[in-house]
Design a protein around this nucleic acid. Structure first.
Lengths: 147, 147
DNA sequence: TATTGTTATACTCTATAACTATA
DNA sequence: TATAGTTATAGAGTATAACAATA
């Protein structure tokens, strides 16, 4: 196989895998009654976070975080609270219900994710090495808007 | 690292990689003056194809193929023609201009894709093996709508 | 003056439903 | 009756611009 062909094949395989991971994520979100974007925000809320930080983490505009927060708040999964240090800032945090939903979401993500399922332990380690080399050591930034 | 942690890390790395691949694909599309969805359709049109087949390939509804085809036709990149064997079918094909655009698009995709750039030949082969095992031998189905 | 968050608005992506023409 | 394609419409995702409160 020529080098270019091989690169094309790798890109194609990754896109295919991506497609299936996204399907899995959408299924996981639907299992918990959320849209993918809502589920991404929920997934990120392991600990409380200012809305601004959420926008940076999800690589999207602050106004969209307002939209998502409104919806998650209406569902009783998150709540906004004032930041004592800076009265402009609003902290987003999970409610008890939100924590339960997040736990279920994560288990569904793992359940639906096709990613490492068919690899044994040493293959997983090998894959992780390769991915780290492709990404650089600081590559993983978590879920992002629109993926 | 625990097995679950490792799986989580792999999923995270893949998501990060996909995020950057999507950015690269969007850049490539923009370089050619297309939206990502239009670029995906163009990419698939290596040879003429009924609109129905395009919808199947891109995993989207037939009506969306009509929308995309309208736009690509307005740009002078594709044309519809009757299928002699079945008068319900319309064949989509690239115009000369469309072929030029597609060639440019593909070179931009390679240029912007972060995927295999930092790996040497044997690492690429290794990666390809792992991806094939994850996907099964028939995994690669090409680009898809919305990724 | 710069920053956080909100509101209103608008654009893109994409699907569903109803339809026409053909098989 | 089933299939290919079109049209109209609507919902989800997301950004931009204008704004209020605070720093």
């Amino acid at each position: 196989m020529a080098v270019d062909e091989q690169a094309e094949e790798i890109i194609g395989r990754l896109l295919d895998l991506f497609h299936r991971m996204r399907d899995g994520f959408e299924k996981a979100a639907a299992d918990v009654g959320l849209t993918p974007a809502e589920a991404q925000a929920l997934h990120r809320l392991d600990e409380p976070s200012p809305m601004r930080a959420m926008a940076d983490a999800l690589h999207c505009d602050a106004s969209y975080i307002t939209v998502l927060s409104d919806r998650l708040e209406a569902l009783g999964l998150v709540e906004r609270s004032a930041d004592p240090g800076d009265r402009r800032v609003r902290q987003l945090a999970l409610t008890r219900e939100g924590r339960r939903a997040r736990t279920r979401l994560i288990s569904r993500i793992h359940q639906h994710s096709p990613a490492p399922g068919s690899l044994d332990a040493s293959q997983r380690a090998e894959l992780l090495d390769l991915l780290e080399q492709m990404a650089g050591p600081d590559g993983y930034r978590g879920f992002t808007c629109g993926s």
